[in-house]
Amino acid sequence: MIKSKKSRYGDWIVVFLCFLLIVVCLLPILNVLARSLSSSEALIKNKVWLWPVGLNFDAYKMVLNDSKYTWSLIWTAMLTVTGTCLSLFMTTICAYPLTYEKLKGRRLFNTIIIFTMYFNAGTIPMYLLLKDLNFLNRPVVLIVPYCLSVFNMIIMRSFFYGIPESLRESAELDGAGPVRVLVSIYLPMSTPVIATLALFYAVGRWNGFSDSLMFVKKREYYPIQHWLYLLINSMTRIETTTVEGFAPPGLSETLKSATIMFATVPILCVYPWLQKYFITGATLGAIKE
């Protein structure tokens, strides 16, 4: 179909607006990246825009030399991996049974679970519970209390509903039990939803800092975001050993930028590859009970 001149102009306006959006989304990251790679003198003189001035990697080296930051990065990675595995396991064993239409008590289980989405006890009751369980200031508090999200469970359940019932029935006729059906039929078919939820849970753990802020006082258990929070609010600083014995002005700014990049880059490297999956996942979440 031949497009009219008017609609072709329209197309270019749309293209331009989308370009503007890309710029607005990327600008802050590019700015911080440039600052983290620039020399501190250039930073003070306000010379750095979107391209590093006086390119060097000193800031990154300094952050990596500060043992509490390197440890925190490793620690957060460990928490993320363990937490994601636990969350995926819990989500699966919660979502799968609920897809059995004939399961006695299914409605009750559903109600018990969905209710928690609309009403929760609140921050202080949670804090007191964790105190009574003796979870405070222990690594477990960063993994277990929020390991199962109802929202994510619903995404997985919706996905499972999409798998034809006949597959399950024929496997059951062959004598396979529910667990066998889950492991050898459902899970192999669920790569998209597992990838999506792994991303959601991993990003949640990597980005989380409020649970650490509320429930953890031991500094060695702080996840990276907690350190980053303290750093950008100048409540802590990166230990630097300079020859002169004092840090040049502007150095703290490059260090902040470098730390932000450390916390951001892992996510930026992962999410684009999973785009195909999480779009389906995010759409499934909208299907209601």
């Binding site: 802050p28 980053l228 929070y229 730390t259 951001t264 930026l268 999410y271």
Partner: peptide, 21 residues
Amino acid sequence: TVAYMPHFLSWVIIAGLARQL
């Protein structure tokens, strides 16, 4: 892809970016 990116950043990171910007 670019527009989805900010969703994956934590508010601490966004606050850090915003303070610099």
